[in-house]
Amino acid sequence: MPALEHILVVNAVLFAIGAMGVLTRRNAVLILLSVELMLNAVSLNMVAFAVYGHVDFGNITGIVFAFFIIVIAAAEVALALGIVVRTFRNRATANVDEVNLLKW
């Protein structure tokens, strides 16, 4: 088994990459994908803690957490894409700073 710290570091890198995507991308779908990467890092973190840290407590909170996060992420994608499609219908763009009636 890999060490817990190694998994955590890998997750931290994944999380930061996702954050970079959110902060640098301007296309709504790509921002959404980046957020999904961040959520993946979180789920992995949760599972890692559950598996490693607290086996002696016999609790599987982290695994349940990861499960729910994945479900929520899916719902989030569905809803966000609904909004993207709606925006595109009205404005013919999916870029968040081209939809700039409001200041971004």
Partner: peptide
């Protein structure tokens, strides 16, 4: 549409930050 889109994207981003903190 635009308000909703920005709100949703930043909301999802903030959820991710908070979740990482929770983890």
């Amino acid at each position: 549409n635009e308000g909703s889109l920005k709100y949703m994207l930043l909301g999802a981003f903030s959820s991710a930050l908070m979740l990482y903190g929770i983890s």
